[in-house]
């Protein structure tokens, strides 16, 4: 007898391990049966998880912390049981802008700052949700170049609309997860400026989230799901040729295989077993990013809540790096560090 687990996900390569676990039966070997439901927005995943339409969800790691900290405006705290990978995001910009500012994160940000003249129309960059690594990565990048506040405006654009939004001149660039950067680049709408791993490494962007109440009432279920994901990742390490096939099959209703495969081959996205763990240090790092964005305060009380929201794994994941420096804990008081 296995226990059914209804899981919502978005069509992204970091939904891969959920599909691998299900296709290969790692869920059933851990006493669960995953049924995977494709969704269309992070808001839907959050709401359907909160109202019991799903048992678990593919979720933005910072959104889990935001819900635990009570920032959502309604009480539906989530916990993260496992990371669904590390470092899948990239920043893409229009071909014209790419021409003008190409370079690593610090140099492209400096060129961007120099490009803008006071009074000009602000450049518009899109991320995916108020609480997302995508949002913080854009903020950190802009800060690196000392880009003026008036020079840019940030908005949310669903990644599926990003290519058309760039073509229509509605946005100048976006930060999205894989494979949307590849997809948009193949269409000729944008160019990948840099993978976010050039800015920060070992960063959990998505986790498998459960409602906190249900998870605490029956902690064996999230733990079993985390084991199934870890096994899926181990399988992926040993079957590199088969992994893209499973992921491409799972995502092709929304995305062509020609976009999924190169995105999976990109050397920054990590779906290995070590990448599925969560740690207190990661919780601190994400809290520091929420605080950097002005969404939360980095204090002892918030730190406790954040750490409780990330269920630490026995095998600790790699420590986050920011601009090549290992994150040692605490708030990001000064950024960039040299400034």
């Amino acid at each position: 007898m296995t226990r059914p687990l209804r899981i919502g996900y978005l069509p992204l390569t970091d939904a891969a391990l959920l599909h691998v676990a299900s296709v290969n039966g790692f869920d059933r070997e851990e006493g669960l049966t995953f049924t995977l439901h494709r969704e269309t927005s992070w808001a839907n995943l959050r709401d359907k998880l909160a109202y019991g339409f799903y048992d678990a969800a593919h979720m933005l790691a910072p959104a889990v912390l935001a819900s635990a900290l009570g920032l959502e405006g309604f009480r539906a705290p989530m916990i993260g049981a496992a990371a669904l990978g590390l470092d899948g995001n990239a920043v893409s910009v229009s071909p014209a802008l790419a021409e003008a500012i190409a370079g690593d994160p610090p140099s492209s940000a400096r060129k961007l700052a120099a490009l803008w003249t006071a009074g000009a129309k602000p450049l518009r960059f899109a991320h995916v949700f108020p609480w997302s690594m995508h949002h913080y990565q854009l903020l950190l990048w802009l800060r690196l170049g000392g880009v003026a506040r008036d020079a840019v405006s940030l908005t949310v654009t669903p990644p599926s609309l990003a290519p058309a939004s760039i073509e229509a001149g509605v946005i100048d660039g976006f930060c999205a997860g894989a494979p949307w950067n590849t997809f948009s680049q193949q269409r000729g709408a944008s160019r990948i400026l840099f993978p976010c791993a050039a800015l920060m490494r070992n960063c959990p962007e998505k986790v498998l989230a459960f409602p906190r109440g249900a998870a605490e009432a029956d902690p064996d279920v999230p733990k079993a799901a985390a084991r199934a994901l870890r096994r899926a990742a181990l399988w992926g390490e040993q079957n590199r040729a088969d992994l893209p096939r499973i992921v491409a099959q799972a995502l092709t209703p929304d995305l062509p295989e020609s976009a999924v495969r190169p995105a999976l081959d990109a050397d920054w996205l990590r779906l290995d077993a070590a990448a599925t763990g969560l740690s207190a240090l990661q919780a601190d790092f994400l809290l520091a990013l929420l605080a950097f964005a002005g969404q939360a305060t980095f204090d002892a009380a918030s730190q406790t809540v954040a750490r409780e929201a990330f269920w630490s794994s026995e095998q600790a994941p790699p420590a986050p790096h920011l601009l090549g420096q290992t994150y040692a804990g605490g708030p990001l008081e000064t950024f960039p560090p040299s400034a």
């Binding site: 269309t40 927005s41 992070w42 808001a43 839907n44 995916v128 949700f129 108020p130 908005t155 949310v156 654009t157 669903p158 599926s160 609309l161």
Partner: peptide
């Protein structure tokens, strides 16, 4: 409508 990916745009706007 709930199937609309642009729900996430509203999530940002309200904040």
């Amino acid at each position: 409508d709930l199937e609309n990916p642009s729900r996430d745009v509203l999530e940002q706007m309200i904040r």
